[in-house]
Structure formats: structure tokens, C-alpha cells
Amino acid sequence: MIRPPPLALALTLAVILALDATGCSPEVGRGNAGEGGGAGITVAAAASLTDAFTELVAAFGAPVELDFGPSSSLREQLLAGAPADVFAPADRSSMDAVVAAGVASDPRDFATNQLQIVVPAGNRAGVSGLADFADAGRLLGLCAEEVPCGRFARQALSNAGVNPVVDTNEPDVRALLTKVEAGELDAGIVYRSDVLAAGDTVEGVDLPADAGVTTSYPIATLAGSHHPDDAAAFVAYVLSDEGRAILAAHGFGPP
């Protein structure tokens, strides 16, 4: 049973690392919302909502723990029973899956977002539209097809009749944006709100109206919430005029 030290260590590491490969480990600790400790609610929200929701929570007043991640990862965590009180993904399909499983109910759209081409400040590669995404000579990135921003970007490219030649499919929208900000990519397709959040380091190029894809953000309270009233109050605040104003300031449109 007992192995010699080096190999036991090697095996243990190999298996731990193999597990680590399935990702999401930083989000394991989720505060104490599920413990009924009265320390506030936990909101699982799409990574693209990071800045807007951080400001919303500050304005909301009551303690709220924010858990940001790719919508699809959050969905998997919630379906696996992770404790949270409110879910706000970046696409309806993630919400639908959670509602179908009985984990959330009565979702409502609270915002919309548009896609934009993002280029490093100065746009040295001279990217001007979707057609440039077929150019193998440029360094181009998209979100991976498996995450909403990648799916929507491919939809927009397909609407425009462009067959993209990309150098990387990033696992989430922030990862893609970071590479463009650092100038390591000539262009990517992200949400308008992300371009706004990145400030002066990047520039946004609007998509033509007929290729534009508008995404809806739904929000719902979760069935397993230990603080259903607080959760409902937060959802109401997001949907309120005050909440919408904050979202608008971060580049999100009305639902």
C-alpha cells in the first residue's frame, strides 16, 4: 500500500493537477451565504458584469458577495448544488438550464449588451470591420465557441459572411480583452461594456447594424437561497431605475 516517497508524490501531484485542469478552483469558496450566518447574499454573475455589479452592490447598501465567472461555469456550479442566492448569466440558455433543473425560477431580463470589435489603442493593424477577421496575417482572437461571447461573435461573423481565421479561442471574455489590452492580439470581439470598462487601453469598432447580435442578461433568485427576501430585494434593485442607470453607465442597454 505504501509507495516509496518520490513516486507517491509524483502520483499525487499528477492526479491533483489533472483535477486542477478541470478549472474553476478559485471560485470554490463562496463565502457563507449558504450557511445561514446572516452575512448577506451571494450573487453568481457573468464575468462581463464585473464592474457594473460591483458598483450596483456598493449602491445597494446591504452586504452582497459577488461570484463572477463564465456563465457556463457558474451554471455548472449551481447545477452541482453550489450555494448562492441570485444568478445573473450573460445568456438565456444558461438561465434556462438552471430553471429547467428547478434551481431557479421566474427569470427576468434586466439588460442587453452588444458586441464590438476591440483593438489595442492606436489600432496599429488597421482593423476596420468583421471582414478583417478572415486575414491570417493579423493576430486575432475570439472567445471559445463554448462560452456565450464566442457563440455570439461567430453568429455575427457568420451573418456577415466572414469565415474567421483566429490565433486563439480564449476561455472567457476578460481573458480575450486582456490579450488585446496588452497588444498581444490585433483584434477580438467582445461586449461593448467590456470595451468601455477597459478605458483608454483599447478602442471599440462598432459592428454593422445587420451583423450586430444583441444579447440579453436574465436574473433570477435561486430556490436554495437561505435569504429569499434579501435575494428578491437585490433582484428588484437591479431592475429598478437606479439599477438600470448604473448598468447604462457601464455600456449595457435596457432589456
Binding site: A21, G23, P70, A144, N169, P171
Partner: peptide
Amino acid sequence: MPLAVFLALES
């Protein structure tokens, strides 16, 4: 493989 696993987990 780890990247493929991570993205497979999304879908």
C-alpha cells in the same frame, strides 16, 4: 488536454 477539458466543461 487541460484546456480541452476546461472548455468541454463549459458545454
